[in-house]
Amino acid sequence: MSGHLADDGRADPATEVFVAHRSLLFTVAYEMLGSAADAEDVVQETWLRWAGVDLGAVRDRRAYLVRITTRQALSRLRTLGRRKESYIGPWLPEPLLTAPDVAEDIELADSLSMAMLLVMETLTPTERAVFVLRDVFGLGYDEIAEAVGKNPAAVRQIAHRARAHVAARRPRGTVSANETRDALDAFQRAAETGDLQGLLDILSPEVVLLGDGGGVAQAVQQPVVGAGKVARLLAAGLGRISAASLRPAHVNAHPALVLRLNGTIDTVVAVRIDNGLITGLYAVRNPEKLSRMRQETTLRR
């Protein structure tokens, strides 16, 4: 984004407004797309459209910017859908290194988890946009209607349908950061020592492991289901890794583990926890998806 400067050297009002809302717009786009690279492109497209707007005619600047971002993200979501169809192996959202304070906004943190983003993947593009704008960002039905090109009554129905769909698939009950950390600590200890029983104790019998290598890095091509299979696979793979290379981090506002090999990030492991046990393991290995792990991404509502 190249801003415009007023005569006194300060950014002009349009640029100031955009910069003030940039993190919000990125968060909206990322929640809709699960891809930081695509979310950045959407924010850039939003800026290009915003730069040509007559500020005097804009009543609610935040809502107007969110509307542009939503429209751009919706068209990109359809393109992304086609890309995912030809993606090699499971597709996982792009992990973001986040500041610990993002976790303090419980609703935002909940919507950013890998598990929740994968649930949102099962919605249609319009359902996802409506769900994100209504349930995560609290926009009114009228505002959402303008953003998605539907009437408010239709949006209300879509929101109801999307909410029911998500409720049926989301993790059961809220999981505290401490619970996640305890599960990850146990997982890390078991993984570093190749302790098969230790892994079995923390994994749900129906645990699902998904690996995203994108055809670039080696990863499981199909979901691995069941505690026994997952534990054996992890014990075999992680037993060869030195303890120093597996480290905790805040990923998508939740505790996760980051594996470094020779100082380079190799894998980001996020988890889904239900009733104290790990029910989902998400290992992102595609190097193209690991660039946002080098520095914290600011996310806000």
Score class of each variant (00 low, 15 high):
Gly173Ile: 04
Thr174Met: 13
Val175Cys: 01
Ser176Glu: 06
Ser176Leu: 03
Ala177Asn: 12
Ala177Gly: 10
Ala177Gln: 15
Glu179Phe: 04
Thr180Ile: 14
Arg181Ser: 15
Arg181Asp: 11
Asp182Lys: 12
Ala183Lys: 05
Leu184Gln: 00
Leu184Ala: 02
Leu184Cys: 02
Asp185Ala: 14
Asp185Phe: 12
Asp185Ser: 15
Asp185Pro: 08
Asp185Lys: 15
Ala186Pro: 08
Phe187Met: 10
Phe187Cys: 06
Gln188Gly: 12
Gln188Arg: 15
Gln188Asp: 13
Gln188Cys: 14
Arg189Pro: 09
Arg189Asn: 12
Arg189Ser: 14
Arg189Val: 12
Arg189Leu: 13
Arg189Trp: 10
Ala190Asp: 03
Ala190Ser: 10
Ala191His: 01
Glu192His: 11
Glu192Lys: 13
Glu192Asp: 13
Glu192Val: 14
Thr193Asn: 11
Asp195Pro: 05
Asp195Ala: 00
Leu196Gln: 09
Leu196Tyr: 11
Leu196Phe: 09
Gly198Val: 04
Gly198Asp: 04
Leu199Tyr: 00
Leu200Ser: 08
Leu200Glu: 04
Asp201Thr: 11
Ile202Ala: 07
Leu203Tyr: 08
Ser204Thr: 06
Pro205Ser: 06
Glu206Trp: 08
Glu206Phe: 10
Val208Ile: 11
Val208Gly: 06
Leu209Gly: 09
Leu209Tyr: 11
Leu210Tyr: 10
Gly211Ile: 05
Gly214Ser: 03
Gly214Phe: 02
Gly215Glu: 03
Gly215Asp: 02
Gly215Ala: 03
Gly215Leu: 00
Val216Lys: 09
Val216Ser: 10
Ala217Asn: 06
Ala217Gln: 08
Ala217Lys: 08
Gln218Lys: 15
Gln218Val: 15
Gln221Arg: 14
Gln222Ala: 13
Pro223Cys: 01
Pro223Ala: 01
Pro223Thr: 02
Pro223Ile: 04
Val224Tyr: 01
Val224Thr: 11
Val225Ala: 07
Gly228Thr: 15
Val230Ser: 00
Val230Met: 02
Ala231Tyr: 05
Ala231Ile: 02
Ala231Lys: 02
Arg232Asn: 15
Arg232Trp: 06
Arg232Pro: 08
Leu234Val: 11
Leu234Glu: 05
Leu234Tyr: 07
Ala235Gly: 06
Ala235Glu: 07
Ala236Val: 14
Ala236Cys: 08
Leu238Asp: 07
Leu238Asn: 10
Arg240Asp: 09
Arg240Gly: 09
Arg240His: 13
Arg240Pro: 07
Ser242Leu: 11
Ser242Asn: 11
Ser242Gly: 14
Ala243Met: 07
Ala243Asp: 09
Ala244Tyr: 14
Ser245Arg: 10
Leu246Tyr: 01
Leu246Asp: 00
Leu246Phe: 05
Leu246Lys: 04
Arg247Thr: 13
Arg247Cys: 03
Pro248Leu: 00
Pro248Ala: 00
Ala249Phe: 02
Ala249Glu: 06
Val251Gln: 06
Val251Pro: 06
His254Glu: 14
Pro255Ala: 07
Ala256Asp: 03
Ala256Lys: 05
Ala256Glu: 03
Ala256Pro: 01
Ala256Cys: 05
